[in-house]
């Protein structure tokens, strides 16, 4: 209520506009207007400043966000807290996070490179295995082929040897047969002449000479 007194005393001051407002005030609150008479003149300039200070502190008419008496404090404390906040972010927190992210990025890149290298090694191992397998297969094929050839060759030579043996035996047999045949045929002549001689003797034809018999035989045979 003290401030209301001050503002109403202002009616007694020289300021015309202010007295207009004060008349309005006296209308609503007559006791204050009369009560404030004593300290009339000098308070004119204090009008607004005391008014806002009171409202700022208490619960008054000024909308708090537009109460300029609070601005210096808010600005100063904002500067202090935000400045400190900026400093701590820029010097402590953000470098830490950046470093962590960098490390992780490097680590991942390294691991990927390592994985790539290992994959290369694996591929090389697979390739050499494949090559070894192909060589082994070829070698096995070669061995099979040479063995087959060798066996074939030995079979062929044995067969050839066996065929040779058979041929010579056959030739011997044929020769023997020819001999036997020849000797048999020779004995046929002798038997025929002996038989002819005996027949002649029995028929009483005398005795035929050997030469005659032979001559007769060859004539018969033709």
């Amino acid at each position: 209520m003290a401030s209301e007194n001050t503002s109403t005393t202002h009616t007694e001051g020289t300021d015309a506009a202010a007295s207009g407002a004060a008349t309005h005030a006296t209308g609503t609150d007559a006791t204050h207007a009369t009560g404030g008479d004593a300290m009339a003149p000098a308070t004119g300039d204090l009008h607004t400043s005391t008014g806002t200070a009171d409202h700022g502190g208490g619960h008054g008419g000024t909308f708090p966000p537009f109460d300029s008496s609070n601005y210096p404090s808010q600005l100063v404390w904002l500067a202090i807290t935000f400045g400190l906040f900026y400093y701590l972010m820029a010097k402590v927190v953000l470098p830490r996070i950046a470093q962590t992210l960098e490390q992780r990025h490097d680590r991942i890149a390294n691991d990927l490179a390592e994985a790539e290298k290992l994959k290369g090694e694996t591929d090389a191992a697979i390739a050499s295995y494949e090559q070894a397998l192909a060589e082994a297969r070829q070698k096995a094929g070669d061995i099979a082929r040479t063995t087959r050839d060798r066996v074939q060759k030995s079979i062929d030579s044995e067969r050839a040897a066996a065929e040779d043996g058979l041929a010579s035996k056959m030739a011997d047999a044929e020769k023997h047969i020819a001999n036997v045949k020849a000797s048999a045929l020779g004995e046929v002549d002798e038997i025929a002449s002996e038989t002819a001689q005996t027949l002649i003797g029995m028929l009483g034809g005398g005795k035929a000479t050997k030469a005659e018999l032979t001559k007769a035989l060859s004539e018969v045979r033709g």
Binding site: N70, P72, S73, Q74, V76, W77, L78, I80, T81, F82
Partner: peptide, 12 residues
């Protein structure tokens, strides 16, 4: 200048 530590400063 009124540079009081206020509830606003507290929450900053």
């Amino acid at each position: 200048l009124d540079l009081s530590f206020t509830n606003s400063s507290l929450f900053m």
